Amino acid sequence: MAKSATERKREQRERDKLKAEERRARLLAYSLKVDVYQGTADHVERIKQVTGIDEVHDLLTRAIHNISRLDDDALLAFLAEP
């Protein structure tokens, strides 16, 4: 018996969802859960406002990638400050 368009579409969505979940599982190194105190939250909010980056995870990802571009001495100096 032939499948209806609705059935085919539902099956396609299920396949796409599996592909997305499998892709995420392959790419994900680990999840990060962090307690953020008010002073740090204030700094994050200021950075979000200045940069226009709305999502904290996007902001953190960009910051980590950009910080990692520093040479070793600059990285040590950057992170030596509180």
Rank of each mutant, 00 (worst) to 15 (best):
E14A: 08
L60W: 01
M1K: 12
L59G: 03
F78I: 04
E45H: 13
D58F: 12
A41L: 13
K3D: 07
T61Q: 06
I47P: 14
E14T: 00
P82D: 12
Q38K: 06
G39S: 13
P82R: 01
K19S: 05
R69P: 07
T40N: 08
R15Y: 15
Y30S: 09
P82Q: 00
H57T: 07
R13Y: 05
H57E: 10
R13H: 10
D54C: 01
D72M: 04
L60S: 02
E7D: 15
K48P: 11
I53C: 11
V36M: 02
I47R: 10
H43R: 15
R13A: 07
I47Q: 12
R15D: 08
L32T: 09
I64P: 00
S68A: 14
V36H: 06
E21Q: 10
M1E: 09
A63C: 08
D58N: 13
E7V: 01
A77Q: 11
D72F: 05
E11N: 02
A20R: 04
A77I: 06
R10P: 01
A80I: 07
R69A: 04
V50M: 09
I47T: 12
R10Q: 15
A74Q: 15
F78R: 09
E21W: 04
E45P: 08
A29Y: 10
L28T: 04
K48N: 12
Y37I: 00
M1Y: 07
R10A: 14
L60A: 03
H57W: 04
V56N: 15
D54I: 14
R23K: 15
L28E: 06
K33R: 00
D71L: 03
I64R: 05
S31C: 03
T61M: 12
D58E: 14
L70W: 06
K33S: 04
R46T: 07
S4F: 04
K9Y: 13
K48G: 15
D42T: 00
H65P: 00
E22T: 14
R46K: 09
F78T: 06
A25W: 05
D16V: 15
G52A: 03
A74P: 02
A29L: 02
E81K: 03
E22H: 10
L79H: 01
D42F: 04
T40W: 03
K19N: 06
A20F: 03
Q38N: 05
V34F: 03
K19T: 07
T51F: 14
A80S: 10
S68K: 14
Y30C: 00
D58G: 00
M1L: 11
V36A: 11
E7A: 11
D16K: 08
L60I: 05
R8V: 05
D73W: 12
G39F: 11
T6R: 13
A5D: 13
D42N: 09
Q38Y: 03
Q49E: 12
E21D: 06
L32K: 01
K17S: 01
D71C: 02
T51H: 00
D72S: 02
L70I: 00
H57G: 05
S4C: 08
I64E: 11
L70S: 07
E21I: 15
M1V: 02
L75H: 07
D16R: 05
R23P: 11
I67C: 00
E11F: 10
T61E: 09
R26K: 09
T61A: 11
G52T: 08
F78H: 02
D73A: 09
L76R: 04
L70Q: 11
I64N: 07
L18V: 15
I67Y: 10
L27N: 06
